[in-house]
Amino acid sequence: MSLLSVEELSVTFTARGRKDATAVDGVSFAVDQGQVVGLVGESGCGKSVTSLALMGLLPRKGVRIGGRAEFDGQNLLTMSERKLRDMRGSQLAMIFQDPLSSLNPVVPIGIQVTEILERHRGLKGEKARKEAASLLDRVGIPDPARRLKEYPHQLSGGMRQRALIAMAVACAPRLLIADEPTTALDVTIQAQILELLKELVDQEGTALLMITHDLGVVAGLCDEVNVLYAGRAVESAGRRELFAHPTHPYAHGLLGSIPRLDAPRGEPLNPIRGSINDKIAWADGCAFAPRCDHYTMECLTGTPELTEPRTAGHQVRCVNPVLPTAEVPA
């Protein structure tokens, strides 16, 4: 059985006098021990809200959550706040996008790291400090004893992200959720951080849920990839399968619209027309239909089902998938 299995997760934001906004609309995926699963999509596709829902970090009021998210047999979505607090940090941990705003600016790094050790592992005083120093050392922060006394603003961006990772892995969590962990960083620093995450997964067998918009990062890191569009997974496959045969027109278009470092130059890109604002509700049909080059009237007759038009395990939510015969040169 999978460590985390999410079934038909939906998150709807409600406010009086306004239309309900459905950010996540039936997302299902599973993460196994030692596996890296990617959630990819553009802004507004619901990838971050998914992670917040799993961690129980969404506000209680004004949010309606549906579906199931089983972590080790327990449903995270209905768990009591007290129990969830025990789980967060020790079993589940999260790395956020912006390392500066996720650290408390007026508290030294050391206290922020030892806080977790005190709460979950019962370490105190000198012992906790020693452990914190070894954690910082492990994620590649030099001179950890001195760094523990420093404030977040004294660290560089890459170093801050390392500190956040140290805090996330402090209690050897079984599932790590990384929400755009390298988006705020430069490419050379990004390469360092990705290498570090890979190491953690390989050595500790931690499961990693990687949330990103960068298909390049996904290609190098994830075992399984879920492409989200407007709150639903439109395509799920192993990374080699997905990148070799993108089958949903959205995934196909996305890969065609990225300028690649290793591709021949001089050809114009094939962008997807319109923007994410041009969508229809999933209940009425395929949300991507207004931007799709392959759409037919069939697309507007209710939510398309997940099918496996190519190979087993390669799921696509489309009635007119991009198949070899119809493939346009990318």
Partner: peptide, 18 residues
């Protein structure tokens, strides 16, 4: 260091870590 959206390339290439 620039990630390429292609697993074949990603697995093969050598990365110079600064």
């Amino acid at each position: 260091a620039v990630p390429v959206p292609d697993p074949e390339v990603e697995d093969r290439r050598e990365r110079i870590l600064l």
